[in-house]
């Protein structure tokens, strides 16, 4: 079976500095891939390359077996590839309702009422806040809104960047419970995280990105053991301490 999302030898640079030096990764349809790694490893760049926001300087990006290098991000978005960027993926000055409406261009032809209905069904808390500007909500609620907006249009591929950033552990657990529920609906997910403990529970496969290269890839249980080494640049220590706690 062809992987739904595949990177072959992908390179990317920021100006003169190359940040991805030939990354190979593949995710089958309906699987969850967790990409872990320390700051500056190139995780966010990887997602931006996938979403078409950053042109790769080498290698191939394949979506559904078709080469997607240099594809227009708007086209990718309309074909069901959805990135929730780092930070809060919401428009702060639009109301919650208007944030949800931003998805209504899709060929699926959802009405606004349907969009709101689905979002509220998944995150009831948003139902009370439809008229509120998104920027006035708490961080966790904003991430919920971002997830909700990504979900109502039934994406084929969901790219999540640092969902946990700046949030309380309880909220992070709640968000990842939603991610698990989404994964159960056969959405292919690539999730980038520094907070390894939460994401490894959800992932089908995990990869560790260090200095722009895949340092390790495999089942989450195996990866968990190698993490400290990857983060600290030395041999894996005896105790399998989750990286999120360092």
């Amino acid at each position: 079976m062809t992987p739904l999302v595949e990177l072959r030898g992908v390179r990317a640079r920021h100006g003169r500095v190359e940040v991805l030096h030939g990354v190979d990764l593949a995710v089958d349809a309906g699987q969850v891939l967790a990409v872990l790694g320390p700051n500056g490893a190139g995780k966010t760049t990887l997602l931006r390359v996938l979403a078409g926001l950053h042109p790769p300087s080498g290698g191939e990006v394949l979506l559904g077996g078709r080469r997607a290098n240099g594809a227009d991000p708007v086209d990718l978005a309309r074909r069901g590839l959805c990135l929730i960027p780092e930070g809060r993926g919401v428009f702060p000055s639009l109301t919650v309702r208007e944030n949800l409406w931003m998805t209504t261009h899709r060929p699926a032809g959802l009405s606004r009422a349907e969009v709101e209905e689905r979002a509220v069904a998944r995150f009831p808390r948003l139902g009370q806040r439809l008229r509120q500007p998104a920027g006035t909500m708490s961080g966790g609620e904003q991430q919920m809104l971002a997830l909700a907006r990504a979900l109502v249009c039934e994406p084929a591929v969901l790219l999540l960047d640092e969902l946990s950033m700046g949030l309380a552990p309880l909220v992070v657990a709640e968000l990842y419970a939603s991610v698990r529920a989404i994964a159960a609906d056969d959405v292919t997910i690539v999730v980038v995280e520094q907070f390894a403990a939460a994401v490894l529970e959800v992932a089908d496969t995990a990869a560790v990105l260090v200095e722009g290269r895949v340092a390790a890839a495999g089942p989450p249980a195996d990866i968990a053991g190698q993490l400290s080494g990857a983060y600290l640049g030395g041999a894996p220590p005896a105790d399998h301490r989750p990286a999120g706690t360092t």
Partner: peptide, 18 residues
């Protein structure tokens, strides 16, 4: 709505197909 969204975050607007 997309016009207003663009001011908040142009690249996020792109990701939403605007």
């Amino acid at each position: 709505v997309a016009m207003r969204a663009r001011v908040d975050d142009p690249s996020l607007a792109i990701l939403n197909g605007a």
